[in-house]
């Protein structure tokens, strides 16, 4: 038994598929691709798959990762070939490799966001404020105030063919997670968001997660 990490993109119509649904898709891909994965040993045995980070409904991603364990000596190349053959439209397997870090070490993520219409100036002004206080629901269901400004690692705003593009790096992972929708909602409650794409994930040193 050896652990493998699978990286994939989730784009196009797959953005309408929830995280739970993607879990099921992956389980079926494993079966259809005849990948000999390790099953948990409990009352209800099921294939062990562990996803790096959940992705909100409506988001695309170029940096999804899932871990599983392989029972036989199938190579990473072969796993990649087999999963690619059974992946649905919108899912592209980009790499299969041996895991190095734990998913719990993920600390940040890049998001690429396209907002309909020209609002570069307003968005830049908003993000360059010294403080952006918003209310966030905590895991326990309470509400606390946080300063978004100190959470944003970096950002850049640009015009993109009549629309506005924002590239922003935010805390992501089990320790702290800021959904980019929180930033967008603080900016305006009347936005038409064309795309949100998770571009990359990083560890606490801002190294690309692997």
């Amino acid at each position: 038994m050896r652990p493998v990490r699978i990286y994939y993109n989730k784009t196009g119509k797959l953005k309408y598929i929830s995280h739970l649904d993607i879990n099921r898709v992956m389980l079926r891909m494993i079966r259809r691709g005849k990948i000999n994965v390790w099953f948990t040993e409990g009352f209800h045995q099921h294939p062990y798959v562990n996803f790096a980070l959940p992705l909100s409904l409506g988001f695309e991603s170029e940096s999804e990762a899932v871990d599983m364990r392989i029972n036989d000596d199938m190579t990473n190349d072969e796993i990649m070939k087999r999963l690619s053959a059974v992946a649905p439209d919108g899912m592209e397997i980009t790499a299969v490799c041996d895991p190095i870090k734990k998913f719990s070490e993920i600390a940040y993520a890049d998001f690429y966001i396209v907002i309909k219409g020209e609002c570069e100036k307003e968005l830049d002004d908003f993000l360059s404020q010294p403080q952006i206080i918003v209310e966030k629901t905590t895991k326990k269901g309470g509400i606390k105030q946080i300063d978004l400004k100190e959470k944003i690692v970096k950002y850049s705003v640009s015009a993109e063919g009549g629309d506005t593009a924002l590239l922003i790096t935010l805390p992501a992972g089990t320790q702290e997670n800021i959904n980019p929708n929180l930033v967008l909602a603080a900016f305006s409650d009347d936005l038409s968001i064309k795309r949100v794409v998770r571009r990359a994930i990083y560890d606490s040193e801002m190294n690309i997660f692997a």
Binding site: Y16, V25, P88, G90
Partner: peptide, 8 residues
Amino acid sequence: ARYIGGEQ
């Protein structure tokens, strides 16, 4: 996902 098709 009810409305997008594209299923396997």
